[in-house]
Design a protein around this nucleic acid. Structure first.
Lengths: 241, 241
DNA sequence: ATCAACAAGATTTTCGAAAATCTGTTGACA
DNA sequence: TGTCAACAGATTTTCGAAAATCTTGTTGAT
């Protein structure tokens, strides 16, 4: 009766967990657009499973703030707004500063080594996809996340790390919305290098400034895409199977 | 089959939502003890509903960190530990400082008035239950929460407020564990008054110190109850119907 | 005496249909 | 012509049983 128990990656997963992961990825990458209605029937077809796992996944996504829910009116992908983006950024700056401050205090040689490695890998990745220009390079996104994780990895507080990754997820959605816009410009590498160097030199005030600058710059770019008043183009539509 | 449809407060609720609220309250107050196993059958009996609503509620509680889940081995109330309490407190101090700092910057007359009112109501509540000494006064707990909310109500950041209330919930569980211990001692009123006054005077540095002191003091009391190494007495048991 | 394999029991997880709820439209009445 | 009530269709929510999975206790071989 032994299923594929081997170590592909994480096969022995429950249905609901699989749907949760996939759906979450779909939302964060905006394959499911903000404010899009999520109908049971459509989702069941899309993820090929029963209603219970779908419902469970939606409930978890709801608790994490990725979908909203109205009584007996079903689920929607959490809408985006200019105000939310501003608030999110402001908060992220604060949280990230805490994490980095603690990381600088606690970081050991291992942390330094990992950080250097993560920066190197990131700096060698092109930001835009070589094949499909205008789209973001998937590998770059992975390395970018890894770099920022490495930066605060030594912070030593699971609670802060949890909060931080939740906020990172939220922000990722806004970035995904803006990929169609111009991606080029802006010297990311220099910003990341500054972050790394101030951290390695244990220059806490400098690192705090670098964090603020980096996040502000990112947001300014993204904010252009999200209309100051309301919705994003393409929302309100149904699930695309 | 018609249940109690009357309008106590917010009746027209979905089953799962009701179970979620009740169960959450049971966990935060430690009527469901840390690390306690949560069996479907027992929960269905306890909350008088089907498996689906229970499962949904558990999933949401899982996402909020109130229960943990192992593949095909069911759910447990999230365990407590000394280390977690320390980390939680450290983080709460930082978050609360941010919220209060912003609140002091943005607070208007309305905010000041509410804060004064909340403090007054809190100061007039006895901390221990007049009937059952040794147990915390339910009204006091409500007013206490209200006061701390009022303190940061003007912070203007939904994101920070969300994070904050999540941490408050987590902490509440630890406080509930320690109620059986000595509650008396320690001049809460003075601490809260100091918090209020520094805030009203827009003395941000003073308020930051007051926050740190207040949270540290609370935790020191609670920490005595949670063994430095491991579990709390009475855990590991089953659901008590 | 120790360990592995097996079987019975208990528990979680999933499914599909039934029940409850909401939305939009039609038609009657003022 | 405008308002309201009732109906029909669509959707969410719940239930109870079936399927899959894990745990525990027993047997048999080394």
């Amino acid at each position: 009766m032994a299923a594929v128990e081997l170590g592909n990656s994480a096969e022995p997963q429950t249905q609901a967990a699989r749907v949760f992961d996939q759906m979450r990825a779909d939302i964060l990458s905006c394959r499911l657009m903000p404010n899009e209605r999520l109908r049971m029937e459509a989702l069941r077809a899309r993820y090929d499973t029963g209603t219970s796992p779908i419902r469970e996944a939606l409930m978890r996504l709801h608790a994490e703030g990725h979908v909203v829910l109205e009584q007996n009116k079903g689920f929607r992908v959490t809408p985006v707004s200019h105000a939310t983006l501003i608030d999110l950024t402001r908060t992220r700056i604060e949280i990230e500063q805490i994490a980095l401050r603690w990381s600088i205090e606690n970081g050991d040689v291992e942390w330094e080594a990992n950080l250097l490695g993560a920066f190197h890998r990131l700096s060698r990745q092109p930001k835009t996809d070589p094949d499909k220009p205008g789209e973001i390079n998937e590998a770059w996104r992975r390395e970018h996340r890894t770099f920022h994780n490495a930066l605060v990895a030594a912070c030593g507080s699971p609670t802060i790390m949890n909060i931080r990754s939740g906020l990172y997820d939220q922000a990722e959605r806004y970035v995904a919305l803006s990929v169609t816009s111009s991606i080029k410009a802006r010297d990311d590498v220099a910003e990341h290098e500054l972050l790394m160097n101030t951290a390695l030199e244990r220059d806490t005030p400098g690192a705090m400034d670098a964090i603020r600058a980096h996040f502000s710059a990112t947001t300014d770019k993204v904010a252009l895409t999200v209309a100051a008043d309301g919705q994003i183009a393409g929302a309100d539509k149904e699930v695309v199977s």
